[in-house]
Design a protein around this nucleic acid. Sequence first.
DNA 1: CTGAAAGCGCTAACAA
DNA 2: TTGTTAGCGCTTTCAG
Lengths: 334, 334
Amino acid sequence: MGNVTIRILARELQLSAATVSKALADSHEISQSTKKRVLEMAAALNYTPNPYASSLRRKKSQTIAVVLPEVADSFFSQAIDGIEAIAQDKGYHVLVCLTHERALKEQAILHEMLGGRADGILISSCSETTDPSSILELQEKGVPVVFFDRVCEELDTAKVVTDDRSSAYKAADHLIRSGCKEIAFLTISENLSISHERIEGYKHALEERGIKFKKTDIIPCTHHAEDNIQLLKKILSREDHPDGIIASVEKLAVQVYQACHELGLKIPEDVKVIGFSNLVTASLLNPSLTTITQPAFEMGRAAATLLFKALSNKSVEPSQVVIPSELQVRDSTG
Amino acid sequence: MGNVTIRILARELQLSAATVSKALADSHEISQSTKKRVLEMAAALNYTPNPYASSLRRKKSQTIAVVLPEVADSFFSQAIDGIEAIAQDKGYHVLVCLTHERALKEQAILHEMLGGRADGILISSCSETTDPSSILELQEKGVPVVFFDRVCEELDTAKVVTDDRSSAYKAADHLIRSGCKEIAFLTISENLSISHERIEGYKHALEERGIKFKKTDIIPCTHHAEDNIQLLKKILSREDHPDGIIASVEKLAVQVYQACHELGLKIPEDVKVIGFSNLVTASLLNPSLTTITQPAFEMGRAAATLLFKALSNKSVEPSQVVIPSELQVRDSTG
DNA sequence: CTGAAAGCGCTAACAA
DNA sequence: TTGTTAGCGCTTTCAG
């Protein structure tokens, strides 16, 4: 590889490696003139530091890991943009680790993080049950962990969430006001904190409006689009199908549209639809989709900001930040 | 940090560090019984290797870097999913580096990669001009670089692209057959290889159908949605506005819809639209959007596969893989 | 202000 | 089959 190392720079400059290292780090104990010489030589020889040597020595990787279910989802990709904006600003790298909604994968990733690959972790947990042990170990080791969106309630970490419960309340309330009598609630996993919160908000709205909650209106969906569409078609083909649907996950909203299209059902006449979604195309859909829009980018930024605060303070305060979502009424509930 | 190291394992087991290291690597020169003991002790003490020590020593990071403009774009996020699927399978990590379409940022990232942070690089270059020097240096250092989608023509690297030229040809041809007389072509950067290819295909179709190419029909757009929408509204407000639009970038297709909505223009009656896009919602838009759908996931997979081939072979053949896109005719050109 | 020495945790030669 | 030794490239005392 014949790489240019600090030693080589030092030899060329007739200096010690230590001095060169300090000069490159802009240490105050090095004279301006030496710094200048070092920097020039570094540029001339096209020196690039070996990050791993530095990490090993300093026990810091200048890297944060983002652990999340997938990236092909508007919420997550926007959140990554927010995270990355902060990280880049702080001179940190972002390792993206996808769990594909598999608890085992998530555990493996987190366990691996114990090795010190990342200085801090941002996580939006997968829909299967989260095993808190690795998280706890990470915290014990002083690796700050910040949950965002899909948090783990049992854990005492910093968290960034949106107002899931009241958003779901608003969604359900809006549907009821629009005339819906039976509202189905689509979810991917009931043991996910946000699902739970959202279901509570939904229930609350029903209660308040004197509609009795039917357990069968909570529709557990899968991660397979086709299966969901089949299921939705079955439900929507019934004589007494729901006249309102809340899709608590972006993808599910799309699938409802697909199912309706295939069945020839009219939105909002036959069924009104509202989705938790960050789709840029929401307003362009046929019909335009009423959404609960989450502040994805801001949540990413906020989570990263909390993480870096923990990283500098060394004190990991388990604060909780709530950034409100917004109900955007469009034609699908009109 | 009191981390469990190989030395500690060795001490507990009354073995040498080397033996433990080899046992953990499942080396053939270690007896089964010793391996078993080591593994058990490692599990008992919850040992996790320090990846940076290993990287430093082996001069391999087990990490690949993906350098791309942004992640909040269906093409890129799907491509990442494809890349990650392969990387995870090979036991590699994925560092996502965003350029935000800034050439300087891209250069900085690539330069930094010279330090050995990643064993290989996947890149879809930004829309500003790419400086090939860092890429060349990386190649000289034996770091394989694979371009995908937005390739750099001057560089002799492995590349994964789609059939941009013939796709654009098909798009333009389809519009002409649908009755369009003047077709605007929206692009974000003309010095981007794919823009160039696509424009060529577009020109070719015009020529073949006896429509004279007007340079003013190539509309250079920006990365600011609002600016683009203003521009589009200006163009579409003209008496003699184009009756067909090819959006060569996913976001631009969405912006055309927005501009038309705001102006009250009807798609496809007033203007027909076709977009290079991987939007899952394309078929649900109002009206459904005719697309050139790129094989994003497959391109990601293919690029990663090429990279790993280079990583194992040590021979970086500058092969070029072309995966065709698909014209999906929908109502926006009906 | 500069340098010498030590070592982060791991692994590759080489020896035993 | 196991152990000894050395060192990846960097940073951090501590001494000069």
